[in-house]
């Protein structure tokens, strides 16, 4: 079998059955259900604390009518974060490198925020298409540009996380294969291994930041389209 660099990103199949379900189900195992009648353990307590802090921070700038989104945004953040971080383990498949998953999350969520705005405050939502103080001759062009930037948002949202993770995984694979192929020169190989270690730390940061950015941008779109 001739493996290429990109084979790690093709979704796994057994007998033409996609294993995406299993790879995503694995992520949910580390989140036990919290129960009022049971004492929490350390894992559950720290998860609870993190979820509280994140939800509070996320909902702070959003008007009260947008607070219904707290649960879905926090859950999405949890799914993306866990998927990104567990995908960094060697020989695992990262579901968040798949465009069909990220676009599948980005498009409906963005559309929902847009429709909420157009339904509840159509004038305010349409006013976002023209920045205040624009000279009159520029108005038609600017509305066109703003409309395009509005429509391109879900695409950018989905592609951003996919591209970042794909680039990171590729870099790590290239560096690790270089470490192995340079094993005849121990000093150089060791230096490449140190580079790989530093890259892994960077990728862990990227995994967390990208999950946060995805949800934060969605919350910004929501903030634009909700009112007090």
């Amino acid at each position: 079998m001739n493996l290429t660099l990109f084979d790690q990103f093709s979704s796994p199949n057994i007998l033409a059955i996609p294993l995406m379900t299993i790879s995503l189900l694995m992520l949910t195992i580390i989140f036990p259900m919290k129960h009022n009648r049971l004492l929490t353990n350390r894992l559950l307590s720290i998860q609870s604390k993190m979820i509280h802090i994140f939800t509070k921070q996320l909902m702070l700038p959003i008007p009260k009518s947008g607070h219904h989104w707290a649960l879905i945004l926090t859950s999405l953040m949890t799914l993306l974060l866990t998927s990104n971080l567990l995908g960094l383990l060697p020989y695992t498949f990262t579901p968040t490198t798949q465009l069909s998953m990220n676009l599948g999350f980005a498009l409906p969520m963005w559309l929902a925020t847009l429709l909420i705005g157009l339904r509840n405050q159509p004038t305010m939502s349409l006013a976002h298409l023209l920045p205040e103080g624009t000279p009159t001759p520029l108005i038609p062009t600017l509305i066109l540009i703003e409309s395009i930037s509005l429509m391109i948002r879900p695409l950018a949202l989905g592609v951003r996380i996919s591209a970042n993770l794909t680039a990171g995984h590729l870099l790590m694979q290239l560096t690790s294969s270089a470490t192995l192929s340079l094993s005849s020169m121990p000093t150089l190989s060791f230096m490449t291994a140190i580079l790989l270690f530093l890259l892994t730390i960077l990728e862990m940061a990227v995994a967390m930041i990208q999950a946060l950015v995805f949800v934060l941008l969605l919350s910004l779109y929501l903030q634009e389209n909700t009112h007090n």
């Binding site: 093709s10 996609p18 189900l25 939800t55 926090t74 799914l79 579901p95 999350f105």
Partner: peptide
Amino acid sequence: HPWFSIFITSWLILIIILLPKIKSHI
């Protein structure tokens, strides 16, 4: 390739499994 199955699966897992778990924390 299996874009529809990936799309459906990811949403189902988010809504049916992860959402109640996170909800129990909030």
